[in-house]
Design a binder for these strands. Structure first.
Lengths: 69, 69
DNA sequence: ATGTAGACTATAGTCGACC
DNA sequence: CGGTCGACTATAGTCTACA
């Protein structure tokens, strides 16, 4: 059974790294806590769609980019 | 500014209705509370990605279907 | 069948500190 | 720079009841 939290976290990390952005910078852009970004990328947090939306905007990607598995 | 909760709720309602499924039945299939489904469709709740995933599975649609605006 | 309200428990999301 | 811990506050998600 696929874990959506893990899959989402991996997407965030991959897209963030492809843009050479640090977790710290992403946190600032998305107005979220840095430690929370860390947890998200490591598949530990079940984020809300508002948070998904904020991160998508911060990385300038459509939301669906994070759910294409 | 677009409200992601409202947009998501409208998608759930539209897809659910297109399949002639009641909120009650959707709640049962997704293993969520019926009143919660009602709130979601009315744009009142900031659902988690696990909940989005459950609803997507219950309606037999890929997650991205709910974020194509 | 659906919307809403209120009271409840679990967890999303913050923050400071340390490695 | 990123992972983790612990304590915290806000809200996700449940449930009963009534229109």
């Amino acid at each position: 059974m696929m874990d959506i939290k893990v899959a989402y976290g991996e997407k965030v990390k991959a897209i963030r790294k492809s843009q050479n952005v640090s977790q710290e910078k992403l946190a600032e852009l998305a107005e979220l806590d840095r430690t929370y970004i860390s947890d998200i990328e490591n598949g530990k947090r079940n984020v809300s769609i508002e948070t998904v939306f904020k991160i998508a905007k911060a990385l300038d990607k459509p939301m669906i980019s994070f759910f294409e598995f």
